[in-house]
Design a protein around this nucleic acid. Sequence first.
DNA 1: TCCTACCCTTGATCTATATCAATCAAATTT
DNA 2: AAATTTGATTGATATAGATCAAGGGTAGGA
Lengths: 193, 193
Amino acid sequence: MFEVLFEHISKKISLQETEMERLKTFFIPKKYRKKQYMLQQGDVCKYIAFVEKGMLRSYQVDDKGSEHIIQFASEGWWIGDNYSFLTGLPASYDIDILEDAEVLLITQPRMEEMLQAIPSMERYMRLLMQHSLISMQRRIACTLSTQAEERYLGFIAEHPNLGQRVPQHMLASFLGMTPETLSRIRKQLLKKG
Amino acid sequence: MFEVLFEHISKKISLQETEMERLKTFFIPKKYRKKQYMLQQGDVCKYIAFVEKGMLRSYQVDDKGSEHIIQFASEGWWIGDNYSFLTGLPASYDIDILEDAEVLLITQPRMEEMLQAIPSMERYMRLLMQHSLISMQRRIACTLSTQAEERYLGFIAEHPNLGQRVPQHMLASFLGMTPETLSRIRKQLLKKG
DNA sequence: TCCTACCCTTGATCTATATCAATCAAATTT
DNA sequence: AAATTTGATTGATATAGATCAAGGGTAGGA
């Protein structure tokens, strides 16, 4: 159950065997079924989740009822509403399950205890946040400077597997376009070769 | 020279007097004049800067020559190309000075030494990254779900001072619209009341 | 095995915003 | 103070992508 997490951590820091054992005790393993909610807008985000298996998404629903996907999270990704988790205030995002999932949950107080108990995890968390920030900045730069087709091509180049696993209309939502537009773009691209 | 930095740090963690003195030794104070570059695309981002005074911006220039502003940084903000700083690879952004500035620079190796010497700074950095990530996610959600006018109103509501200090066409670039569009939006808003 | 979601596609039309172009105003340089 | 650059405004026109609407395929539940 902890394989993916340990692998992910060991790419950023190194932990001793005893620390790894200790680490396990802070997490709550949990399974979710497709279509379940992990978090609903307005509720407090009590847990941040690390995905061992399956796929989740976080998204925001606007006043017209359209969904805007903030993040997909498959194996090896963290997901949660950071702001709500950190502050205890109501979440602005929904999180639900796209493929049956196995996740590792941790609460805010347990996270604090973990960082006390295993100080090098503070570094892991810093690097994690830093990398997420970098990719968010890339996404903004991309949104500001490129057209729909280029955005789509960039996405599938960077996440070839996600392109397969996620329904096309969700991909469109993530990329900031309508499903119709994405469908037409793909048609165009097929014609071109 | 370190007032703003110490205040910013003390909002997230607490440092002892000796640690604060030690901290100073890792930074290089530097003054920049308006229009100077702090970083140019293609160069390696050797320093991350904390702004004590003045204003900077990071931006990307696309193939057509248009600028897309990623971030403004006034007093109390950090700025740099995180990716280049972290990896040592060429930067994708330009950074330049909008108002004469006093900044505190730190290199990657000195940053590592600092985190060793003052472990609680690791926590500060983690929280810093986490907050930046949260605001970037907000910006993406906003870009995906709202029209130009609403985006503008949201921005000036959150950063009333920046609205004054920054030329209008840069604000437009930050918000992902043309200067003409922003000008028309402001005209509309004046009419309304 | 049928039925009902759900998802993708395609066409017709509409609209927010971009682009192009010309002034005008203000600030910076000489 | 004149000259030059830089920024904001406004109008006319173009366009990427949204919206509306309909049809068809496919998978999972009863």
